[in-house]
């Protein structure tokens, strides 16, 4: 049992380290909030009239359609910060120090993941706030809000572990900041910005089956009362699979890097 207690203590220490990083360097968090906010404003005020008309309404309908996708876009962008901070640790001497100490091995990774979740939720809070300010009108009940937070958490958790693995696999901080970029594209190649039915055949199939679409559909259903169908289960399945595989990948890379 002492091993478990030590793992918890060490993970908490590493988590506190990440919180200090967040406090010391708020500029990264601000940047992670800024980009989705710009996209939100751009899509609502520049494209929103036309896109809303395409949905059979106007700009105000489009805000509602867009907001769940923007939340996912926020997460996808924010995990780049995770990959960068992992890569920074791995390319500097500090990781050798940690590894030569009798601490729970994975605690460094756990600390990064927990720290990133805090960062992502700070970003989500601000992005959601601005969406509400410009006319996002969810009709969710308290229970649905709770479920929304759960889905956002599960998705953030999965993508953060994926980013940890990507950061670990990168040889440099620059690479680590680039590799998670494809995640930011996925909400576009799904139902985040426009309905998938409007896409050409090949793209439509990809859009319907890629993991971000069920997440967006679940969020949309919870927040706006559209049909969820089996999206919630598919979402949880994807999140579990991505988390598990990324965790294994990240841990293996972490142990391999020791051998360099």
């Amino acid at each position: 049992m002492t091993t478990l207690a030590n793992t918890i203590t060490d993970s908490r220490t590493m988590f506190q380290r990440q919180l200090l990083h967040l406090r010391r360097y708020p500029s990264l968090t601000i940047m992670l909030i800024g980009l989705p906010v710009i996209f939100l404003l751009l899509f609502v005020y520049v494209f929103g009239g036309t896109l809303g008309a395409g949905l059979g309404g106007g700009r105000s309908e489009y805000v509602n359609y867009l907001a769940p996708g923007i939340l996912l876009f926020t997460i996808a962008g924010a995990v780049a910060g995770t990959a960068i901070s992992i890569a920074m640790d791995m390319t500097e001497g500090i990781v050798d120090r940690f590894r030569s100490m009798a601490i729970a091995r994975a605690s460094l990774l756990t600390g990064h993941v927990l720290g990133s979740l805090v960062q992502i939720f700070i970003a989500l809070f601000f992005v959601l706030g601005i969406a509400l300010l410009i006319g996002f009108r969810p009709n969710a009940t308290p229970l649905e809000w709770l479920a929304t937070i759960g889905v956002l958490l599960a998705t953030s958790f999965a993508l953060t572990w994926l980013a940890v693995a990507l950061g670990m696999a990168a040889d440099s901080v620059e690479t680590a900041s680039n590799t998670p970029m494809f995640l930011s594209l996925l909400p576009f190649l799904g139902s985040g910005f426009v309905p998938t039915e409007t896409m050409p055949a090949g793209l439509r199939q990809f859009a319907e089956y890629q993991p971000f679409t069920p997440v967006i559909e679940t969020l949309r259903g919870l927040l706006l009362g559209t049909g969820i169908g089996n999206s919630a289960w598919i979402t949880l399945g994807w999140c579990a699979a991505i988390s598990a595989l990324s965790y294994i990948w990240a841990k293996r890379r972490y142990n391999q890097k020791a051998a360099k």
């Binding site: 380290r17 200090l20 010391r24 500097e92 001497g93 500090i94 050798d96 120090r97 009798a102």
Partner: peptide, 30 residues
């Protein structure tokens, strides 16, 4: 690991933290 200390060739410090925070981090990890 529990009996040794290592000071490598390149400073193994957390450059984002202060001197005191770095040392406290070590104290917590010990």
């Amino acid at each position: 690991r529990a009996s040794i200390g290592l000071t490598g060739q390149f400073a193994a410090v957390d450059r984002l933290l202060t001197v005191q925070e770095n040392l406290r981090l070590m104290a917590s990890l010990h």
